[in-house]
């Protein structure tokens, strides 16, 4: 394993163990069955305990294996890649914030154009593709499947 990936496993294992411990503590507030047997707490409790167990096991294994060479090389993530991924997430978040006020068509159309453009599509191509996708979704989901997509001041 490379220096990066064994540390990744330590972090991943610790996160799993902490999550499991939090669940185990939280389910103690759940009610019991009338006869005093565990009810709603049993299943998540067991899952939480096992998460602690396997999380710690992963940490131990990663620490023990830290000197060994990695089977798969870690492909570096570039800053540009991060920006692109954040832009993808940004589209969803901004849509959540604006769709109800501006309506589906306007919000999605503009966001799609911006994301395509940012990912490297030529502006003309991006405009055509964004309008076509938005139109297709409106046609199929709203007209055919009768999904009430958010309507803005323009009615679509």
């Amino acid at each position: 394993m490379t220096a990066v990936s064994w540390r990744n496993d330590v972090v991943g294992g610790l996160l799993a163990a902490v999550l499991g411990a939090a669940v185990v503590l939280h389910v103690r507030t759940f009610p019991e069955l009338p006869d005093g047997q565990p009810g709603p707490a049993l299943f998540p409790g067991v899952v939480g305990a096992l998460l602690v167990l396997f999380g710690l096991a992963l940490v131990v294994r990663a620490v023990l294996a830290r000197g060994l060479p990695s089977a798969e090389p870690d492909v570096a993530v570039t800053t540009q890649g991060r920006v692109r991924a954040l832009a993808v997430l940004g589209l969803v978040v901004v849509y959540l914030l604006l769709a109800e006020t501006l309506g589906f068509g306007l919000t999605m159309g503009v966001l799609l154009f911006l994301l395509m453009w940012l990912l490297g599509a030529r502006p003309v191509v991006a405009v055509i593709a964004a309008v076509a996708t938005t139109g297709f979704v409106l046609l199929v989901f709203e007209e055919l499947l009768l999904v009430p997509l958010p309507q803005g001041p323009l009615g679509w």
Partner: peptide
Amino acid sequence: VPPSVLMPMIVAFCVVGSFSINN
């Protein structure tokens, strides 16, 4: 088919598809 066009389209379908299950 350029990924720069395709990927945003898939995101749009992810958003609308999730919404359509329960509006």
